[in-house]
Nucleic acid binder design. Structure first.
Length: 696
DNA sequence: ACCCTATTGATTTTT
DNA sequence: TCAATAGGGT
């Protein structure tokens, strides 16, 4: 058993680095705590919070003060709350929740800021119209007014035909706009122009309504469930919330002072992912505190090398918030020495980690090349070689959710949903959240329903599930045991090879049910009544192809048939993936999705391309030795890839394999600089074992 | 041969 | 929303 012995001197050193933090807390000197992957950053954060509580609780309570701890995700919030235990002195939340809480009561001021934002947007939208669209620019002032009037009168017609083909769309407006044929030359541009005109009009109206003190225009509302602003409806989303927060805090010194005096300690987790505006806010607080000679401690905890989302502040943080005391932790408490050596080379800057353990040897890292067709064999080989079991799982990292779906066994579900109009075109970005999220609140309506159907089916045959978890209280509370048994029997009769057959079976039994309990269970589950196969089918059609035109119906019906024709086993695989209580031997993730996690055995499937960028990982390897000499933009690209490499490779505790499925001739040397050597994967058991040292 | 327009299909992740 | 490609017109 390795990774278990910590020498007294290492333990002492680790304690020392904690004490450096504590010392800064005592002196109200703000810090930036950097630690690489697996260093125990969250541990340091928790210990710091505990330190403030233990030492200053009495003082804080006397002055009705609290400690703020902000995180990047809700999951992280929950984890910190759990590890910290119960206390009323610390408010743990996401940054958005906190900012909204701090500013939401300043209603008048927010409306004022909102009005200014509307006006700014009106100006820039008007500028866009003139600058981007030549045909529109060339119209005279009177013509522009006239055009606007016509289009405002025909708003409904415009939206009704919005998704029609260009030629058809043009036909609809040709006669109405006979003076403006030039504008109809390019329908895409035409739509953009008209949309912009509508938006400007909406914003003007909103400004008017604010001026008239109309009821719904007296407050700004933050909607965390919605990803886009609806400024004309006084609704803002995440990004604008931070923007308003920054403005209001910047503008009002009294607000700054209130925050400083109420929250003298602010801790920020994963600072590298935090939005730049948040750091700006902190900097304003810090400077104001200095001005009025009040105390405030701000502690940033994170790692710039793990910034994999471009919205994060990353290493620009020290330019924005100056005079931070830098504390680095160089121990690694996760991985074996072999892994640490490789991730140090990938990172190749600042922090060079060493293991905290004396017995840190025994891992293995290898870099293989192969063709795309060899992936499954490669994985299979390690499944036997590493003696993979549900207790010793293999975690396989791939780049896209589509690939995850494929290898996890629900390829058809993913691909068919991708074809629905609910999840394609302008809505394509919803697919991953609404089909694959493990947060049930984020799942789409239909995925949610299908998941509930699969869940009921599985719960009925799962011996560990209690009746109360399957049926709602109002179903079973007035039933005797015989009736209950009968109901369960009937529910269990629902069977089918495919989803469609299963639903047919559900509706057949629906007719058999004379007591009405089965009906009630199903009505609750489906959220509509008189369930039949045809009704279900048209429900899917309506929800997955909303507002569909007549000539698209055939295509849509065919897609619905595909969904119904998918095997129930595949829905089971999908169900298992979502709920993640996984007893599988091999588990697939996206690179990004593994952030913060750690696994004994990791295989990373890598290739040149990622997303729109054809030169992605090869770009990193090609420039590994001379990244300093790249132009600024290329350097940013390099760092982005480097960080993703660093995050994914540092998940491994013991065994790491990278399988590269493109040609590496041009950058083989640099790969070997990092990984020691590269080998061709030969699809033959005996040969591989020769090269490998077993280490499980 | 070249220009303009229409169509199509696509990365990751959080709030 | 964007970029690559297909397709039509001159």
């Amino acid at each position: 058993m390795s990774l278990s012995i910590i020498s007294p001197s290492n333990r002492e050193k680790e304690t020392q680095s904690l004490h450096t933090i504590f010392h800064s807390i005592d002196k109200y000197q703000s810090i930036i705590f950097n630690s690489g992957a697996g260093a125990g950053k969250t541990y340091a954060l928790i210990e710091s919070l505990k330190y403030v509580i233990n030492r200053y609780a009495k003082n804080l309570r006397e002055h009705k003060q609290k400690i703020i701890c902000i995180t990047y995700t809700n999951v992280a919030t929950e984890e910190i709350k759990e590890r910290l235990g119960n206390t009323d002195l610390v408010v743990v939340s996401t940054i958005h929740e906190r900012i909204w809480d701090l500013i939401k009561d300043y209603k008048k001021e927010l409306v004022q800021i909102h009005k200014e934002k509307l006006k700014e947007n009106i100006d820039s939208l008007k500028e866009d119209l003139i600058e981007r669209y030549e045909k529109y620019r060339d119209l005279g002032d009177e013509e522009k007014e006239n055009f606007k009037k016509i289009m405002l009168d025909n708003k409904e017609l415009f939206h009704k035909n919005y998704n029609a083909k260009a030629a058809e769309f043009r036909n609809v407006f040709q006669i109405i706009l006979n003076n403006f044929h030039g504008l109809l030359g390019n329908i895409i541009d035409f739509k953009k122009i008209v949309n912009t005109i509508y938006k400007i009009e909406d914003y003007y109206k909103c400004c008017d309504n604010i001026g008239l003190y109309k009821k719904e225009f007296k407050t700004v509302v933050y909607n965390s469930a919605y990803n886009r602003d609806q400024l004309h409806k006084m609704r803002i989303s995440h990004e604008t919330l931070l923007e308003y927060g920054l403005q209001i805090i910047k503008k009002y010194d009294l607000l700054k002072q209130i925050i400083i005096d109420k929250y003298p300690y602010i801790f920020i987790d994963e600072y590298q992912d935090t939005n730049e505006k948040v750091v700006l806010i902190m900097n304003y607080l810090q400077n104001h505190a200095r001005q009025i000679t009040h105390n405030i401690f701000i502690g940033y905890f994170g790692d710039t090398a793990q910034n994999i989302y471009n919205s994060g502040v990353g290493n620009r943080i020290t330019e924005i918030h100056s005079n931070l005391i830098r504390i680095d932790k160089e121990f690694n408490r996760r991985s074996t020495k072999e892994i640490i050596e490789v991730i140090n080379k990938i990172r190749n800057n600042g922090i060079k980690q060493v293991s905290i353990y004396d017995d840190c040897e025994g891992g293995s890292v290898k870099f293989y090349t192969a063709s795309r067709n060899d992936i499954s064999d490669f994985i299979k080989k390690y499944e036997t070689q590493w003696k993979i079991t549900p207790e010793n799982q293999l975690h396989c990292l791939v780049l896209t959710n589509e690939t995850v779906a494929k290898y996890s066994g629900f390829e058809n579900i993913y691909n068919t949903f991708k074809q629905t109009s609910k999840y394609s075109g302008t809505n394509y970005d919803r697919l991953n959240t609404e089909l694959l999220s493990n947060d049930l609140l984020k799942l789409g309506e239909i995925p949610n329903l299908l998941l509930k159907i699969v869940q009921l089916k599985n719960n009925l045959v799962n011996k560990q599930i209690q009746v109360t978890d399957i049926l709602q209280k109002n179903i079973y509370q007035d039933m005797n045991i015989v009736d209950l048994r009968e109901l369960i029997q009937l529910l269990k009769q629902n069977k089918g090879e495919t989803l469609g057959e299963y639903i047919k079976s559900v509706s057949v039994n629906y007719l058999k049910d004379d007591r009405g309990k089965y009906k009630k269970v199903m009505d609750l589950l489906f959220d509509f009544e008189n369930i039949s196969f045809d009704l279900f089918k048209s429900y899917l059609l309506e929800k997955l192809f909303p507002n569909i035109s007549d000539d698209e119906i055939d295509m849509a019906t065919e897609t619905i048939h595909k969904i119904l024709g998918i095997n129930m086993c595949e829905y089971d695989m999908w169900y298992k993936y979502i709920f993640g209580d996984n007893n599988d031997e091999i588990i697939y993730h996206t690179y990004h999705g593994t952030k913060g996690l750690e696994f004994n055995n990791v295989i990373i499937i890598m290739e040149n391309a990622f997303g729109r960028t054809r030169d992605y990982f090869n770009f990193f390897f090609e420039n590994y030795m001379n990244s300093q000499k790249l132009e600024i933009q290329s350097q940013q690209k390099f760092e982005q890839i480097q960080n993703l490499m660093y995050v994914s490779c540092s998940r491994a505790i013991k065994n790491l394999r990278v399988l590269y499925i493109d040609d590496i001739t041009n950058f083989k040397n640099n790969i070997e600089e990092i990984f020691g050597r590269t080998d061709k994967f030969i699809n033959n058991n005996s040969k591989i074992v020769l090269y490998e040292t077993l280490s499980v």
